[in-house]
Design a binder for these strands. Structure first.
Lengths: 352, 352
DNA sequence: TGCGTCATTGTTAGCGCTCACAGACACACC
DNA sequence: GGTGTGTCTGTGAGCGCTAACAATGACGCA
């Protein structure tokens, strides 16, 4: 049954010549109709269109790519695609690319290593992508990328500055500043920080923003804790911080814990749980702020003050940057698009 | 500077003929080396390999696809790719496909409509995908899909039964049962339900599991509330439920609210917030369970009992099903792979 | 010596399309 | 009538590869 499903046998997909024959024109005329060339008589065009519909003809993309030397395909390498940020960026990327007439092929990395990155790019190259966007925010990744000397344009997302590879990023340092300033303005003498993994550029930039804001305010910077973006690591950091709240500043020569800036919302969730278990009230005894504004943040206990990043804009800008290079043929050495984040104040940081 | 970066001008990528010439063989021998044909003398093979490395040659995928009639590309249509489930599935899908030597091209839908789905598939067809996986769990989507009669195999994820399109799904009904049974076993006389949008098959199946478990236990089924998967909708449903807890069953002729099964974790988060604001203790006064086991669930206040789905397995199985069809040429009419979910018990449903 | 067999290599055609160019025809102008 | 200047259409080549077949030489065996 399975073999005889299509009654006339394994019929080949119709070709341009088939359409031409049915419409009584040359294959070239069919091609012209398909590419909207102006110099085709209306009646001819209609005839060809009808033949196309009758046969259900579709242009063979491989043949077309072979002769035009354009695959109209872009590659994306992403690292933690189940996280909110990367997933949203991926989405924005794909949408923007499709709008520009390109297809997106994705390769995801379970964990970043220089080898995995190289393999991913190799895989994409094999399929003839015209350029790639790399969403691998580890510090060394960008360096590894710069050494690869690829035969097509590359754009990084959150790839950091100072490299010849163009990229798009959110101003993470500004985000760190916004949060810290906000907490200082609420009257806290200083702000503690639970940082992301320091091989991530974003994590480093958020630390820098936090530290900068403290310095500008003349506040002492307590030693930052470090997590790995997961709620669990935030939970552990939160337990550590909770211990310091109760034991007071004297024992450790550190300032009192009354405000914490956590480098992402998931870790902030862990911190909240740790504080809850320690019997600390938020924001009563400690104010907390996160980063990312995941959809859940508004419904945390209490709702979380955080920083919103416009991932869709990041995706769109990366594609723009990539396609610009494709079409101009010039590489935008070191060009960077920076997107501003926005502080979202909720009750985790404000005495109601 | 940008134009003169490559000193010898815009050199074409090397072709098989270039490699052949450098190695002193015919292009066909190069082709044989590349496709690991056994009948090539070792010395010849080595010579060709060296020429390939010297020139940095890569096979032109378009030319290859043109003659072999195989693009080795699979398409994926996904609907809410920033949600945890779809994103994880996407990830598993891509990884499995790459392992099998295929490339994955993705199209994401902002919102499901029959038109958007058709457009997405059109877009993928234009790029010559050999088959597609559709992760669009709305009820009508599958029907629309069945009517499209596509010239390549299709596999659905969470696409429901009774259609000629093969697919992979998690046993959502079983999941609903597991949760409900668990809550009943804890001594609750009945279990309320905050359902997902009823045009989603998964939402319907979870309702069915919930209702089935109640019936089997001889418990009365209260009218289910309906949300849209977002924390906000869960919050609203939670407010409604909280009102019933305080006013008691008498006013509405409904059983008392002492246990709630929420159709996903995000909505459960909203319910938790509503209950917290209403001064209800969880699980003291009301037990709550969710569905999905998002990474955050363990850190909710309180940690959430939920159902874990193995999305990676779903992705892997879909790709297997698709590639099997590709290689056998036969469509697996109505074949379904069902993956079992697992109950994760945490403190939101248990008196400590 | 003659012939078949096998491993190794080369030759040729053609996948389905676009590009460059060449025709055909209509119309205007001198 | 000749010569442009359009508009519309067809012809031929070739993109880079693989598949089918042909050719070559080495070897074994009668």
């Amino acid at each position: 049954m399975s073999q005889t499903a299509e009654s006339t046998g394994p019929r080949r997909a119709p070709t341009m010549a088939d359409v031409a024959q049915l419409a009584g024109v040359s294959h070239q005329t069919v091609s012209r109709v398909l590419s909207n060339h102006p110099n085709v008589r209306d009646t001819t065009r209609a005839e060809v269109q009808r033949a196309i519909e009758t046969l259900g003809y579709r242009r063979n993309s491989s043949a077309r790519a072979l002769v035009t030397r354009r695959t109209l395909t872009l590659g994306v390498v992403a690292c933690n695609p189940a996280l909110f940020g990367p997933a949203s960026t991926l989405f924005g990327l794909e949408e923007a690319a499709r709008g520009e007439g390109y297809m997106v092929s994705t390769v995801t990395l379970r964990r970043y290593t220089a080898q995995a990155l190289a393999d991913a790019i190799d895989h994409l190259s094999d399929w003839g992508v015209e350029g790639i966007v790399v969403i691998v925010p580890q510090r060394e990744a960008v360096a590894a990328l710069a050494e690869l000397r690829l035969p097509f344009p590359v754009v990084t997302v959150e790839g950091g500055h100072g490299l010849p590879i163009p990229g798009v990023s959110v101003d993470q340092e500004l985000g760190g500043r916004l949060v810290t300033d906000h907490l200082l303005a609420a009257g806290h003498t200083t702000v503690w920080h639970v940082a992301g993994p320091q091989d991530w550029l974003e994590a480093g930039a958020r630390v820098a923003g936090w530290r900068g804001a403290l310095e500008d305010a003349g506040a002492e910077a307590p030693p930052p804790l470090e997590g790995d973006w997961t709620p669990l690591s935030g939970y552990r950091a939160g337990q550590e911080l909770a211990g310091r709240v109760s034991s007071g500043a004297a024992g450790r020569r550190s300032p009192e814990v009354s405000a914490v800036f956590v480098a992402n919302d998931q870790m902030a969730l862990g911190v909240l749980r740790a504080f809850r278990e320690a019997g600390l009230s938020v924001p009563g005894q400690v104010a907390i702020a996160g980063f990312d504004d995941i959809p859940e943040a508004e419904f945390f206990a209490p709702p979380l003050t955080t920083v919103r990043q416009d991932f869709a804009a990041v995706g769109k800008a990366s594609i723009r940057l990539l396609i610009d290079q494709l079409e101009s043929g010039a590489t935008r050495e070191g060009e960077r698009v920076v997107i501003e984040p926005r502080l979202i104040v909720r009750s985790s940081s404000t005495q109601h």
